[in-house]
Design a protein around this nucleic acid. Structure first.
Length: 742
DNA sequence: GTTCTTCTCCTTTTT
DNA sequence: GGAGAAGAAC
């Protein structure tokens, strides 16, 4: 027996050695999921069942892909080339480049970011005569994305599915959007899988070729796949059926991004004859932490069912601490103090994490950690390539490389400011549309025709001249030199150098970093793909620092000590989940709590507060229902009684709509039943004066007078606002106290 | 065309 | 509270 197999427990070994036919590995938190995946991969190669190029291994994050690549290489003792290993999107992009023509694209297509997508969509919506205030482009973009997540091309959408947006205009706009994308030779993230799946569906020869070459399929985090990813996998696996999906239905936390837990729940029906292996021995956490997590998640229905059992020898340990505090400032202080304590006991800061529900919570902790000089890093947030200066630089490169890349051209047309504003852009668009040419070509034509005023003409000439030069530099000296030249000659660098804001030096440094990153690529094309698909922001990655991140970002990580602040109704579970009908959203929140607890190896500290800083003011809060779902024997509670008394003493009878009563089933929270839910704490009561003004309510349809706008008719109302159709001024929304009955 | 002011919004965000 | 967008004023 090879020694890499000997290192596995029996269930892990079964998961590695069951190579023929469909296999679902249900891997609970901390049960060695990554080890199983990488060992299985290496096992396939070492037993010569397939060549590296015949295995498809797919993950969700670049990090997971990188880790798998490294660990497989380590097991084989040699770096492996030619693997189909990567994220869904990276692999989709790779396939799509191979068969671009079949999807109506050229192989050099661009991959758009969110900004670009909206820039493309907006004008289409305007052309359709939509009021962009009533119908915000991001909402439509979201609808289109959801369709793409479900593998729906415009032609597959039925009218019945197109009722949510602007009286059924979404489908047509989606079709127009796809046409525009093709016209500028671009795709968005969703397209990487949508086009590829569509292509495999309709070109049996292409599909057959992949069936011949890809003999084994490995899928990580299967519970997070959406429908189009599922379809893609099923198409690729349908011939040989050697598909192994690893996942945990209890850790499905991305349904809002289109993930369908049903994929994992349905696996045995989708792949008849599938075998299922459960990994239940947890090697990560202590008994109390496991008990707390297990008891919590047991409140969810519709699970595939796993029971984590302690796999560690020294698995006894500290109970989970549940701490109630007065307010969120005190919570931050408590966390900071405890971190200080751990540090002085010699614990490494890198083994400590603060996991929050919503990103705004990080700020309070950051302030505290800064004040006490505790090094920390915020994980997540803006990725490197999402920064404005990086996107600008890339837009310059794209526009240089691809003269037809309208979106890139438009992005930098007036960055830095060169007097080419909206008016000039509109002209370019008109010309471009009339002649069906790219913006840059239209610009050239307009310029040559002498149809522009002096200033605009000069600015445009200089920019177009720049592109011509930069193209030559790119061809002659390569992309790194081209970037430097562009940043210099376009005035972009100068703009940043003149910028006195505190961010400016960092931006310049980011651009240098971009140059360094580019140097690692042979071609600009290769680099551009890398930057939109793979590049991440790993500054601050090194060093002994506390990690601060959202629960979502923490999935897959583990720490000795985990702080879980903000376990309060309305925050966690989040208000939106509470308002939703049914229990689906609430169960996802619970899974998020489960993910949080199971990140901890030896110490978990859960906290909740009575008053939380919220936007400008304060809101009072009540302990999360999840706290009641933790078993008494696995936790120690402190501070809760104090908290309740405090709430009783200070609560005032002001009701706010922010936390509807449905959030607080009185059975679960006696305190909540007795006391009002939410109030503004800042006592000096500025809030009151406003509220008392409610005199005679003004009904819809009433004729009213407004000091500034004159006479009008009320067409609608919302809280203390009235929508009024004014005779002179048109429709406006005003505060009710400024109008009087006419 | 740029700059100042006002209004509006505020969960999570693997690629 | 604070960011970002839209509108008004320059």
């Amino acid at each position: 027996m090879s020694d890499y197999l000997a290192r596995l427990n029996p269930e892990q070994r079964l998961a590695v050695e069951t190579l023929d036919g469909p296999l679902l590995v249900l891997a609970g938190a901390g049960t060695g999921k990554t080890r199983v995946l990488t060992t299985r991969f290496a096992h396939i190669l070492l037993t010569k069942r397939a060549w590296p190029s015949q295995v498809l291994a797919v993950t969700f994050t670049n990090k997971a892909a990188r880790e798998m690549r490294e660990r497989v290489a380590a097991m084989l003792g040699t770096p492996v080339e030619g693997l189909w290993l990567g994220t869904f999107h990276a692999l989709g992009a790779r396939m799509l480049r191979r068969h671009a023509a079949l999807a109506g694209l050229q192989p050099g297509f661009s991959i758009l970011d969110t900004d670009d997508q909206l820039r493309l969509l907006k004008p289409l919506m305007q052309q359709a005569g939509l009021d962009l205030h009533r119908f915000p482009p991001p909402v439509l973009m979201g609808q289109i994305q959801r369709w793409k997540d479900r593998g729906l091309t415009p032609s597959r959408i039925t009218p019945a599915e197109d009722t949510d947006f602007a009286q059924g205009k979404a489908r047509a706009l989606y079709a127009a959007y796809q046409e525009r994308l093709a016209a500028v030779n671009a795709v968005d993230f969703g397209d990487l899988l949508l086009h590829t799946t569509e292509l495999l569906r309709t070109h049996s020869d292409v599909l057959a070729a992949y069936h011949r070459s890809l003999r084994y399929i490995l899928v990580d985090e299967y519970q997070d796949t959406n429908l189009v990813q599922y379809l893609w996998l099923r198409l690729l696996a349908q011939e040989h059926r050697n598909i192994c999906c690893v996942g945990d239905d209890d850790q499905s936390i991305y349904s809002w991004r289109g993930a369908e837990v049903e994929n994992i729940l349905r696996f045995e029906q989708d792949f008849p004859g599938a075998q299922v292996v459960r990994l239940e021995a947890n090697y990560r956490s202590t008994t109390p932490i496991l008990a707390a997590a297990a008891s919590l998640i047991a409140h969810n229905e519709g699970r595939l069912g796993k029971t984590l059992r302690a796999g560690r020898a020294e698995s006894d340990g500290e109970k989970v601490a549940v701490i109630g505090l007065r307010d969120s400032d005190e919570e931050a202080r408590m966390v900071g103090l405890r971190i200080e304590g751990l540090r002085s006991e010699g614990h490494s800061l890198a083994e400590i994490a603060i996991l929050v529900r919503a990103s705004f919570q990080t700020r309070a902790f950051e302030e505290r950690l800064i004040a006490w000089a505790i090094p920390y890093r915020v994980v997540g947030g803006l990725r490197f390539y999402e920064r404005a200066e990086i996107r600008d630089a890339i837009a310059y490169l794209r526009a240089t490389l691809r003269p037809g890349d309208d979106l890139a051209f438009e992005r930098i047309l007036n960055v830095p400011r060169r007097g080419l504003g909206d008016a000039a852009l509109r002209k370019l668009h008109e010309r471009a549309r009339a002649e069906e040419r790219p913006l840059a070509a239209a610009a050239e034509a307009l310029h040559d025709a002498g149809a522009l005023s002096g200033r605009v003409r000069e600015a445009l000439a200089s920019l177009l001249g720049g592109f011509a030069r930069w193209r030559a530099v790119l061809a002659r000296d390569g992309h790194v030199v081209a970037l430097k030249t562009i940043l210099d000659e376009s005035g972009y660098l100068e703009m940043l150098e003149k910028d006195r804001s505190p961010e400016a030096p960092g931006r310049i440094e980011n651009l240098r970093e971009l140059g360094r990153a580019m140097a690692e690529f042979e071609t600009l094309e290769g680099f551009l793909d890398h930057v939109s698909l793979v590049m991440e922001n790993d500054e601050n990655a090194a060093g002994d620092r506390v990690s601060l991140m959202t629960l979502h970002a923490a999935k897959g990580l583990e720490f000795d000590t985990v702080f879980l602040p903000g376990w309060e109704e309305g925050l966690f579970p989040h208000q939106r989940a509470l308002e939703e009908a049914g229990t689906k959203a609430l169960e996802e929140e619970r899974r998020l709590a489960y993910v949080g607890l199971t990140r901890a190896r030896t110490r978990a500290i859960v906290s909740h507060v009575g008053f939380r800083r919220f936007y400008s003011g304060w809101q009072n809060a009540f302990p999360s229902r999840f706290l009641d779902e933790l078993p008494a024997e696995a936790i120690t509670r402190s501070g809760a009684a104090l908290l309740e008394r405090e709430a009783a003493l200070t609560a005032a009878p002001v009701f706010s709509a922010a936390f509807p009563s449905s959030a607080f089933p009185s059975s679960a929270f006696p305190a909540a039943a007795r006391f009002p839910r939410v109030r503004d704490v800042p006592a000096e009561g500025q809030g009151e004066a406003r509220r008392q003004r409610r005199g005679t309510p003004i009904a819809v349809g009433a004729r009213v007078f407004h000091q500034k706008f004159g006479y009008g008719t009320v067409t609608g109302s919302d809280e203390d606002r009235l929508d009024i159709e004014f005779e002179k001024e048109g429709r406006k929304r005003v505060l009710d106290r400024f109008v009087e009955p006419a």
